[in-house]
Amino acid sequence: MMEQIPVEQSLLLAALLFGIGLVGVLIRKNMILMMMSVEIMLNAAGMAFIIAGSRWAQPDGQVMFIFILTMAAAEVAVGLALILKLFHLQKSIDADEMTQMNDITEASESN
């Protein structure tokens, strides 16, 4: 019915999207954009599941995709609520400014 799409190439596409999402998480300071990058990574993982499911002609891949989707939805809801809360408290959503939970200042005092 159609030309066969190579498994490797589609998996490579998923891996590439995953990598780009990882770069996004690592270089963005804005928490909302970091979450978007996480969505990209989740989407790439789901895509890999679907490809694998199609490869073996099994429905499990798509089932997993649906679960990932559900999880992503819940995660975004809670995560965005957290970001809102944080913005109320700190007036900022810059991840680099939220370093209060470090162990460096106390470290120099205790020893």
Binding site: L26, I27, M34, D96, N102, D103
Partner: peptide, 16 residues
């Protein structure tokens, strides 16, 4: 003492 320097509170650092 050596490794607690890595716990700098920076989210992106943890992700890395």
């Amino acid at each position: 003492n050596l490794t607690r320097r890595s716990q700098n509170g920076n989210l992106r650092w943890y992700a890395a």
